[in-house]
Design a protein around this nucleic acid. Sequence first.
DNA 1: ACAAATGGTACTTATATGGTATCATTAATA
DNA 2: TATTAATGATACCATATAAGTACCATTTGT
Lengths: 133, 133
Amino acid sequence: MNLFTRNTDYAARALLYMGGRVGQRVSTVDIQRDLKLPRPFMRKILQQLQKEGYLVSVKGYNGGFTLAMPPGKIRLIDLMRIFQGDFSLSDCLFQKKLCQCVAACPLRRELKAAEKMLVDRLKGVTLADLMRP
Amino acid sequence: MNLFTRNTDYAARALLYMGGRVGQRVSTVDIQRDLKLPRPFMRKILQQLQKEGYLVSVKGYNGGFTLAMPPGKIRLIDLMRIFQGDFSLSDCLFQKKLCQCVAACPLRRELKAAEKMLVDRLKGVTLADLMRP
DNA sequence: ACAAATGGTACTTATATGGTATCATTAATA
DNA sequence: TATTAATGATACCATATAAGTACCATTTGT
């Protein structure tokens, strides 16, 4: 199983790339050239990041993207939330009828706790942390 | 996103059910009746658990399943491994060419560490833990 | 012999992931 | 002002995984 999807992975790479080029405008062409990532897919990803406020975009001739905030403000967990959604615990919703306990259920309780620990840890990791080798 | 799939979830529920009926033989009919889980799917799940050595099965007339070991020996993480595979970090394999760093990559390193923390925690949780309210 | 269970396997369906294509819009520049 | 190079928005396609079913063979108690 996989804690991370490709979306999130690519997003992180692209953002790190931009983090190393602060002030410069970066286009998907640049990213494709330097990171060898599929351009149309990358566009979709960067558009999402723009919508979420992590990137500023400029259309037109020398258009492209720039970071909307310093790398220290972008957390790994934010990217995961954007591209993978919140952690949800095998959607209890649909199981409501079979698991009346929900809140009390020891299985849920335990998993929820493990999940929280993971999230708390990931909350502490920003792109800036990943940039210093 | 989901740390847990339905397979794993159902498996845990079924095993907990059996944990409360030690010595008794439990059939998928019993489980369907009491837990309201789809029988054919449950069969597949229990068959896998049998293959992995967590259940003993008896065919024939009063056939069914019993736990092959005490609930204290069955860890949540084992169920996840059976039904969801090992944690794998957005399969670096395919990305080898774009990410030569692999071992050194700060993104991988960080995620690997977070993952390890999660697994270590889940390793500590057995079905027995979930049985005491 | 028959009924009630699992073993094994192949199949179907639903959903999520990964990725492409297209057209509209914007902006610089010749 | 026409062209070109970029993103915005959206719809679409392909593949993989998850979720679930169906079927036939085998075993076993009555």
